[in-house]
Design a protein around this nucleic acid. Sequence first.
DNA 1: AGTTCTTTTCGAGAGGTCTCGAATAAACGC
DNA 2: GCGTTTATTCGAGACCTCTCGAAAAGAACT
Lengths: 103, 103
Amino acid sequence: MLGRWTPLSHPEIADVTVDDVLRALADPTRRKIVRLLIAEGDRPCGTFGLPVAASTLSHHFRSLREAGLIRQWDEGRKRMNTLRLDELDTRFPGLVDTILAAD
Amino acid sequence: MLGRWTPLSHPEIADVTVDDVLRALADPTRRKIVRLLIAEGDRPCGTFGLPVAASTLSHHFRSLREAGLIRQWDEGRKRMNTLRLDELDTRFPGLVDTILAAD
DNA sequence: AGTTCTTTTCGAGAGGTCTCGAATAAACGC
DNA sequence: GCGTTTATTCGAGACCTCTCGAAAAGAACT
């Protein structure tokens, strides 16, 4: 009953709210994830080198996905991540960049 | 022992973090407060016409003050509020405006 | 089939947030 | 002094978040 089985749900960009984005990025670990996706491109969950437990990281990826910040899909045993930057920038111009530039 | 007696504490702008600002603005009621301060200038707490209990409003003003977003001082029986926009914009260029423009 | 790798879900603990009503207090006007 | 206005603190309820370890599942490989 455990493990990786739930279908991956991604919100439509139109349904993403400012509250969603701000709450998602109001966490340093999640900002690091987003920053790394911008700097080094799409990557599997296990390649972020962050000092948190795997289950904690999983929680942050889920938060980012459900907030509409990232898109995830499975490739073999890895789960890939990409930032939905074009969509986000259309919906909230400059928001992600300005937040990331702020610290 | 209750009432308005605590000394008003305001963080130095250098001690304000991005997390502080994002968490403060990740609430629609607080964004409305900030928007009104920009649109109509410094005002006492009672003049915002928001659909929440007075104690809830007080909680939001305190959040904004402790996050470094607003400055408060007392004038007679009113408590005045001003947005620390110049300071915020020096520390986090464009951040507040971009967030407010996003919704 | 069994092992390893990758990642998730579950359960739990500590702590934070939003909301309200009731009680309280300071300042002002009569 | 007394009542009114303005705004706060306290206490409580409901809910959400970050963190972890343990258990579990799917994919790839032998």
